[in-house]
Design a binder for these strands. Structure first.
Lengths: 338, 338
DNA sequence: GCCTGGCACTCTGCGCGTGCGAGTGCCAGC
DNA sequence: GCTGGCACTCGCACGCGCAGAGTGCCAGGC
C-alpha cells in the first residue's frame, strides 16, 4: 500500500504532466506543489511509484510520466469529478435548447462536447431497444406494397418498405394500423413481440400472410441493433495530440471511422456513472494511447444511449468527466421535454 | 502561348510530382519521360514555365513543383478523365447494391469514394428541393398536436411536430391527409406551395387555423435548405498529406467539420460534369492547399445533390475525377431503382 | 534560331561531435 | 525517515562539413 504522501506525489505528477505535456522531475514538483518535503524525498517516492508501475521515465535521466496504471489510480482514488460552473451549465442548457429536432440535438451535443473538452466527441443516437413506441404508421404504396413507419418516444423515425405476399386492401390496412397501435403505443420495444404475437389470428385468412410479414418487419426494425448510429465531432482537436502525432493520429482516425468499434467501445461501459477507459484498457489497438470517457444518457432515469469523448491518455480527467456528465444530464432533459 | 513541348514538360512535372511527392528536376524528367530532348533544353522550358507562373521552386536549386495555376492548366488542357476499369466498375456496383436504405447508400458511397481515391470523401444527402413528395402522413399525438411526416421519392423521411391553435378531430385529420396527398403526391417540392394554397378554404372555419399551421410547417420543411446534410469519411487519409502536416491537416479538419462551408463549396460547383477547385480557388482559407473534386448525382438525369472528395492539390486528378464520376453515376442508378 | 554538353554555383539534408542542462540514484549525516 | 550533496547519465540543441541534386548560363553545333 502506498503512503498518503506518495499518492499525493502521483497526483501532482499527473496534474503537472497533463498541464505541461512534459515529463516532470522531482525539483519542479516540489516547487509547484507544497508537499513539505525536499526533492530528494520525492525522488525516493518516485522510485517507489516506478517500482509499482504507476509512473515511468521515457529515458534514463528524464522526468517521469504516468503510466496507464497511474492514470487509473488517479481517476479511481485521487481525483473527483470537477463540476461545471453555473455559467457553464447555463451555456450548455441554452445551447441545447435551440435544437429543432433529434438530429439537431445530437449535432449540437457533439459540438458542445468537443468544444468543452477540446477533444473528439462521440454521441450515439438514442437507441431503439430501450425506447417506447409512440406510433406505428402504415401507408399503402401499391396494392401489395406497404410502407411501415415507426416513431419512437425519442423522436426517432424508422421506415421500411414491405412487399406483401398478397394484395392488401385499404380497409384491412386501416384495421391493422388501429389494432397495432392500440396494442403497442407507449409500450417498450422489448415488450412488443409478445404483444403482437396473436395479431394475425384476428384477420381473414387471406390477409394473414401480409399481417405476419408486416409484423416481422416491425420486429426486425425494433431489434436491428446495427442501425445504431453515431455522430462524431471535434476531430481537429486530435492535432493537439503531441509532436509525434503522424503515428498517433492515424490509427485514431481510422478507429473513429469504424463505427462498429466505437459502438462496441461505448457499449462495454456498463457503469451507471461516468466510465473511463484508459489506454490499453481499450480493446482496439488504434486507441491504445487514448482514453475514452463515456456515460449513458436518456430521457427518463434510464439510459437509452451513450455519449463521450476520446482523447489522449494525458487528459484532464476531472474536467472531462465533469463536462461529459453535465452534457449527458442536459441532453436527457431536452429529450424528456420534446 | 506555350509550345507543345513545354506543355508536355508541365504534364510530366505534374505526373512525376504527384507520384513521388518530391520536387522534380530536369534530369529526372528526361530519364522518366521520353521527351526527346536533353536536360538543358528542359531547363530552359522550365524557366519559361516558371516565368509564366505554372511551376515554382521551393528553394533555389531544388526541383520544381506545380503551382495552382499549373494544376489548373493540367486539369483543363493536359489530362483527361481516367475511366474506371471494368472490374472496378463492377466492384462499385456490387458494393452499392448491398445498401438497405438511404442512410446506408450514403454511408457506403462515402466509404467507397474514400477507398477508391484514398482521400477524404464527402457525400451530400439527396436534397429535398428537387425531389418529389411520395407521401405526407399526419398523426394525432394529442388533441392539439399533430405529427407531420414527409416521405420523399429518394426515401428520405422528415418529421415535425405541429402545435395546433385549436383541437383537431380525427375526422378532420383524415380529411386533411386525404386531400393533401391527392394534391401533392408525386409532385415536385417546388410545385407544392401553389398546390396547397387554397386548401384551408375547404375546411370548417374552426379548423382553418390548424390547417394553415400544418401547411406552413410542411412548406417550411420543404424549403429548409439548411437541413441539407453531409456524410464525411476517409479522414484518416489526411495523414498521408505530407511531412509538415501538423500545420496542414488541422485547418482541413476544421473546415470539414463546418458543414456549412462544405455545402457552400459543393454548391458553388455548377458544372454539369466533374468540377475541380484547386488550392486558392477554394474560398475557404483552411482549404487553400487542397483541391476539391465534385460532381452532381441524382436518380434521374437531374442532379439532386453533390458528392466529391477533398485532397491535397498534389493529387492524381485524372484518376480521382474518374472515380468520382463513376461513383456518382452508380449512386444515381441505385437511387433510381429504389 | 534552337538544341546541347559542360561548368561553376547554390542550396538542402544528413551525419557527427560537443557542450549544456535537467534529472536521477546513492550516500552520509541529522 | 528526511535532507543536502555529489557524481553520473542522457537527450537535445548547436555548429560544422560534406555530398548530392539541381540550377543558370555560356559557347558550340545542327
Amino acid at each position: 500500500m502506498l503512503s498518503e504522501r506518495r499518492l499525493q506525489v502521483l497526483r501532482a505528477i499527473v496534474q503537472d504532466y497533463v498541464g505541461t505535456e512534459e515529463p516532470v522531475g522531482s525539483k519542479a514538483l516540489t516547487e509547484r506543489h507544497s508537499l513539505g518535503v525536499s526533492p530528494a524525498t520525492v525522488r525516493n517516492d518516485m522510485a517507489a511509484l516506478e517500482d509499482e508501475g504507476y509512473i515511468a521515465q521515457p529515458h534514463t535521466s528524464a522526468g517521469r510520466i504516468p503510466t496507464d496504471k497511474g492514470y487509473r489510480l488517479f481517476v479511481d482514488k485521487l481525483a473527483g469529478v470537477k463540476p461545471m460552473t453555473a455559467p457553464e451549465r447555463r451555456a450548455i442548457q441554452n445551447f441545447l435548447e435551440g435544437a429543432v429536432d433529434l438530429d439537431d440535438v445530437v449535432a449540437r451535443t457533439v459540438r458542445l462536447l468537443a468544444q468543452l473538452t477540446r477533444q473528439v466527441a462521440v454521441v450515439q443516437y438514442p437507441s431503439l431497444t430501450r425506447s417506447t413506441v409512440r406510433h406505428v404508421e402504415l401507408l399503402s404504396l401499391a396494392p401489395a406494397r406497404v410502407m411501415l413507419v415507426l416513431i419512437t418516444d425519442t423522436g426517432r423515425v424508422e421506415q421500411r418498405v414491405v412487399d406483401c405476399p398478397a394484395p392488401f386492401g385499404e380497409a384491412s390496412l386501416a384495421d391493422l394500423r388501429a389494432r397495432l397501435n392500440s396494442r403497442v403505443a407507449n409500450r417498450r420495444f422489448t415488450d412488443v413481440p409478445s404483444l403482437v404475437e396473436d395479431l394475425p389470428e384476428a384477420f381473414e385468412h387471406e390477409d394473414r400472410g401480409t399481417v405476419s410479414t408486416v409484423l416481422s418487419t416491425l420486429l426486425e426494425t425494433l431489434v436491428e441493433e446495427n442501425e445504431e448510429r453515431l455522430m462524431i465531432g471535434g476531430t481537429a482537436n486530435l492535432t493537439r495530440f503531441g509532436h509525434d502525432f503522424p503515428l498517433t493520429i492515424r490509427p485514431v482516425l481510422e478507429a473513429l471511422e469504424e463505427q462498429v468499434v466505437l459502438l462496441k467501445l461505448l457499449g462495454e461501459a456498463q457503469d451507471p456513472g461516468v466510465t473511463v477507459r484508459i489506454g490499453h484498457e481499450n480493446a482496439h489497438e488504434g486507441l491504445n494511447s487514448t482514453s475514452v470517457v463515456s456515460v449513458g444518457y436518456g430521457s427518463g432515469g434510464e439510459a437509452v444511449a451513450k455519449l463521450g469523448v476520446v482523447g489522449p491518455t494525458r487528459m484532464d480527467y476531472p474536467g472531462t468527466m465533469g463536462a461529459v456528465r453535465a452534457v449527458a444530464r442536459y441532453v436527457g432533459q431536452i429529450l424528456a421535454e420534446s
